[in-house]
Design a protein around this nucleic acid. Structure first.
Lengths: 140, 140
DNA sequence: CCAATAGATGAGAAGCTTTTGCATTCACTC
DNA sequence: GAGTGAATGCAAAAGCTTCTCATCTATTGG
């Protein structure tokens, strides 16, 4: 049940929070923007304001339920925190996002951070490129 | 002379363009925002509008004179293109940016991109962490 | 089960960075 | 040096996100 997750986060169990969490858990698309969530809610006939979507997503992030990423698009995307760490590769043309994990890179990153005096607490690595998808022109 | 670089980029040699390029070349800070540039121009008693700063920086980027990065701050930063590729590690607290190059990571990235069907034409890798700088609290 | 209260919500306004429209000004060509 | 197309400054607008505030609701205790 989503209720408990929300309660554990120290938040009241309200309709918007439950609906948004359900949505994130059932969405085909793992990486969604606040606007995406808002549109999905409208499509599901839920009367939830965009401001609330932003507020709830931010609270979920603070509670560790979701992760927020910026990428180079001008807006933020959120994804359900699945516990295991992973990095992202983002298509600069169509916005497609793939996840990956590479132990070698992890280790090198750690080494570089150590050398430069950085503590990778909020670990977040993004590669940007161009994907070879057939319909790689506009987001779809 | 900056004039030739600007001319080579297919742009008219105007005061704003020369001033901004000079500024980028002489600034202590390699990674500056449009706002930073604008403020530096004001400080130098140059009467150049913010819109022009954005336009010029964008043109410089298209011409390959500078590189633009977003990082997770809400605004973009620009740096003079020094030709040699490098990646960035950014402090999520104070915004400090360090550059690094790691051949192993380069190779692994290439491999990952290949496997996932991405072509790394616009190569851009960013690590986010927390730096251990003494005055790591607010940008400065 | 109801009242009290701290917190949550919706709608719109506001904030920030970046872009655009337009009249004026300027760099380059002849 | 005049003509022309590009460049500039200003203000307005756009796009994403946050804030304000009056209203409403989940939770707690009686």
């Amino acid at each position: 049940m989503e209720d408990q997750e929300i309660r554990n986060a120290g938040l009241k169990v309200t309709a918007p929070r439950v609906k948004i969490l359900e949505l994130l858990e059932n969405s085909d698309e793992r990486h969604v923007s606040a606007e995406d969530v808002y549109k999905m809610l409208l499509a599901a006939n839920e009367d939830i304001g965009l401001a609330t979507v932003y507020r709830v997503l931010t609270q979920f992030e603070e509670a560790g339920l979701v992760e927020k990423h910026h990428f180079e698009d001008g807006y933020s995307v959120f994804e359900l925190n699945k516990g295991k760490h992973h990095d992202h590769i983002v298509c600069i043309t169509c916005g497609r996002v793939e996840e990956f994990v590479d132990e070698t890179i992890e280790q090198r990153q750690q080494k570089i951070a150590d050398e430069l005096g950085f503590q990778i607490s909020e670990h977040d690595l993004v590669i940007y490129g161009k994907c070879m998808d057939d319909n790689c022109d506009r987001k779809g």
